[in-house]
Structure formats: structure tokens, C-alpha cells
Design a protein around this nucleic acid. Structure first.
Lengths: 111, 111
DNA sequence: CAAACTGGTCTGTGTCGCAAACCATACGTT
DNA sequence: AACGTATGGTTTGCGACACAGACCAGTTTG
């Protein structure tokens, strides 16, 4: 009877975290970004950005490629296919939550 | 110099937290809800819901009214004006983040 | 060679979300 | 009355984790 569509409304913390949500969202629109660019775009500190990136990499959401350009280290980050799908899905979930209101309100305060 | 509109793109953790985002979003559409209803709607455990509500109350985002109905405790929760404004603003911020992509992309990977 | 800059990683710490344990009251049964 | 069970929550203990600052490696500048 479909009483409620919220059983699956689970917001993945890994992605939901503000810093990572920002990283992933930025990435989803540029396809590739280096460390410094990401830092500027997300306003994260280096340490913070670094650890978030590690976490995202472990989870297989991003791919990190380290090279040297002009004898300086350069970290290039790209979204994996999985990552792209997950972030898109997350935005869907959020939208679903936002619209959840109208869908399945049964008994606000009966009395 | 207008380069980017992301200076103010700060996601308030208090609100962003999945559990509380759910609570606030539900509340924003029903105007008043009791504990049990909220628990069902958000799929949170009692303890969890309880502590989230306390936090939201401390922050002045919700108002909690405890009464007895049929000799049983009944906790009724409503969004305050501030709360209503904050949750709306948060959704705005999220949308802004989502659209951020197109706005202020300057240098993805120059090379 | 020494400072200073760039581009990151590692570490310490306080915060916080989570669920399980607990509490209070009411109700049903014997 | 004593005993279990249901309802409606609150408090507690703990593990996870985000944050920023300390640190490090290599490079350029003076």
C-alpha cells in the first residue's frame, strides 16, 4: 500500500558531510581538478581537504593522480563512475527528503 | 571582486545533520508533531530523536511542549519562526551549492 | 647555506551521533 | 498486591571523525 516512501531515505554520511559534498559537487562539474583549485573552491584547509580526499579515494568515489609538473607535486582529482553516480543519487535523495513532506503525512497530531 | 559567490556557502552542521534535517523538514510541513509521529517519520531511534530534539530546542529552532494526554506523556514539537527560516535557508544553500558548479568555475586543470 | 614558499600529509583533540540501558507511569492478569 | 508488559521518553558510554595546526619534502630566491 506504499504507506510511506521513506524507508530508503538514507543520507550517506560519507557523502553528506559538507566538505565532501562540496568536493564532490565541484568535481561533478569540472571533471578534473587539482588540489589547490579544490582548496580554493571549497574553502577547506589543506589538512582537511587532504583527509577528505583520502576518504573519498578509499571509498572509490574519486581517483587521485599524483604527478610532478615543473618539478612541483601536483595532485589531480577526478570523479570515478561510481562517484558520479553516488553524488547524483545523493542529490536525488535530498530532493526526495525535501518533497517528502507532502507525500506521506498521515497523522501529524491527532487530538 | 565577485570572482566567486561561494564565500557564504556555509552549511550549518546543526541543521545539515541527516537526522535533524529530516526532523526539521518534516516539521516544516506539518506545523506540529508529536514524538511518536516524528520517530516514525524520521526512522530515528527514541534516544536519537530525543537528543536531536534537545539540541534543536537549545538552538531555538523548535519548541517542545510536554503535556499529558490520557495520563500518558505527550511531547509536541513545533518549529519556531527562526527554525522555519533557518531550514528554508538551508535548502537554499544546498541548492546554491548544487548550482555552484556552473557559476564560478575558473581554472579546473590548466595544463 | 639559509630563509621562505609551495604542496601536501600526519597527529591531537574535542565534538558528536548512535544505540543500548535505564526510568516512570499505566494497564492487564492472577 | 505483586508481576509482567507496553508506552514514552531521557541519560550514558563509546567509537568515529572533522578540524586545524604541526610537520615534512622539495624548490626557488638572496
Amino acid at each position: 500500500m506504499s504507506g510511506s516512501g521513506n524507508e530508503e531515505l538514507i543520507l550517506d554520511r560519507l557523502i553528506h558531510e559538507p566538505g565532501r559534498l562540496a568536493i564532490l559537487t565541484v568535481l561533478s562539474s569540472v571533471k578534473a581538478a587539482d588540489f589547490v583549485f579544490l582548496q580554493r573552491a571549497t574553502r577547506l584547509t589543506k589538512g582537511n581537504l587532504s583527509s577528505h580526499l583520502s576518504k573519498l579515494e578509499e571509498a572509490g568515489l574519486v581517483e587521485i593522480e599524483k604527478t610532478f609538473v615543473h618539478k612541483k607535486p601536483k595532485t589531480s582529482v577526478t570523479l570515478t563512475a561510481v562517484g558520479r553516480e553516488r553524488i547524483a543519487h545523493h542529490w536525488d535523495q535530498l530532493e526526495r527528503l525535501r518533497n517528502f513532506s507532502e507525500e506521506s503525512i498521515q497523522e501529524p497530531v491527532q487530538e
